[in-house]
């Protein structure tokens, strides 16, 4: 049974990994378009995974995730267009910048009650967007944004077509899945589980809750920043409108609908929120209406999301049988 499940998973992964290759034959006219849709799914999946660390693992309602995404995208774009740094080299710098930005924001508000933190993050996102539009440091290009970002190059290979980006983006997504999964099993992940379930008990057991919360925030923001750079590389043009409040809402919605904290759930959520509206394009204008309704219905009937996380299992060492 287990092997059969594993076999199906392997076939699924192979089918997915060769998606740009077979799509050419299935839909010869608009294969590029569909590959691009799946690339967007990949970007949102990474963003949603990074939000999961903040929202689900640490239990902090962050609805300004697009702000960290924006900081990363702008850092990458500025480094690339002003200083000529290759965008993939700028990626870690963009991540770190977004992380530092998030730490400065989060430090004073980390102890706020959940829904207030949510409002603060919304406010931060808006202030950042207004700052970008007003071209506050003279380097963000104002409302027009930044254009002419160079295509990324990997070992001398220029990544420019959607099917090239497919492997770049989903490669990064796979790396993210692997690392975040390892992180969940680590001391850090277990500490977050504890403080989310019972912050007072966690504090009592010697977990520095504020520090762990801050670290989770920093990690999620760093990852969003790196994703921002990927986005800048893919689009070659970025503007403040790409990082509006609605982006944050969409990322938040993906995590909640998919199943708070489960990675498979997050992937499923991303496909539903990002790819499904492309399939039913006649209903595109009703997309948000349906998702809003889905959020309400979901909270009433299935609070835990489509694929909720499984409780952590611990296998106890077999106890020596006593007496009898």
């Amino acid at each position: 049974m287990m092997t059969r499940k594993r076999g199906l998973a392997v076939i699924g992964i192979i089918l997915f990994a060769t998606f740009p290759l077979w799509m050419k034959y299935v839909r010869p006219d608009d294969a590029r378009y569909w590959v691009d849709v799946i690339n967007n799914v990949g970007l949102y999946a990474i963003l949603a995974l990074s939000l999961t660390v903040i929202l689900c693992d640490a239990g902090m309602y962050n609805m300004g995730h697009a702000a960290f995404y924006a900081v990363g995208a702008y850092t990458g774009a500025i480094l690339n267009t002003q200083l000529g740094v290759p965008i993939l080299l700028a990626l870690p710098v963009a991540g770190i910048t977004a992380g530092i930005f998030s730490a400065i924001i989060a430090r004073p508000v980390i102890h706020l009650r959940g829904d207030y933190l949510l409002i603060v993050t919304v406010g931060v996102g808006e202030i950042l967007r207004i700052a970008l539009i007003n071209d506050v440091f003279g380097i963000t290009g104002g409302p027009n944004g930044i254009f002419g970002i160079a295509r990324p190059e990997l070992f001398g290979f220029k990544i420019k077509r959607p099917d090239h980006f497919f492997y770049l983006i989903w490669g990064f997504a796979a790396l993210t899945l692997f690392l975040f999964n390892r992180l969940k099993q680590s001391r850090f992940g277990r500490a977050l589980d504890y403080l989310r379930e019972d912050a007072v008990a966690a504090e009592g057991s010697g977990i520095n809750t504020d520090r762990y919360r801050l670290l989770a925030f920093l990690l999620g923001a760093t990852w969003a920043g790196m994703t921002g750079s990927l986005f800048a590389a893919k689009m070659t043009i970025i503007s403040p409108e790409s990082f509006s409040f609605w982006e944050s809402v969409v990322i938040f919605m993906i995590v909640i609908l998919g199943g708070s904290g489960n990675m498979a759930g997050v992937l499923l959520g991303t496909f539903i929120v990002i790819a499904l509206p492309e399939v039913f394009r006649d209903f595109a204008s009703a997309r948000m209406l349906i998702f809003g309704l889905a959020m309400m219905v979901m909270m009433v009937f299935r609070t835990q999301g489509l694929l909720p996380p499984k409780p952590r299992k611990f296998i106890l060492p077999k106890l020596a049988e006593e007496g009898d």
Partner: peptide, 10 residues
Amino acid sequence: VVSALGASIF
């Protein structure tokens, strides 16, 4: 909170 957000979007 999520239901309220959903209601708002709706």
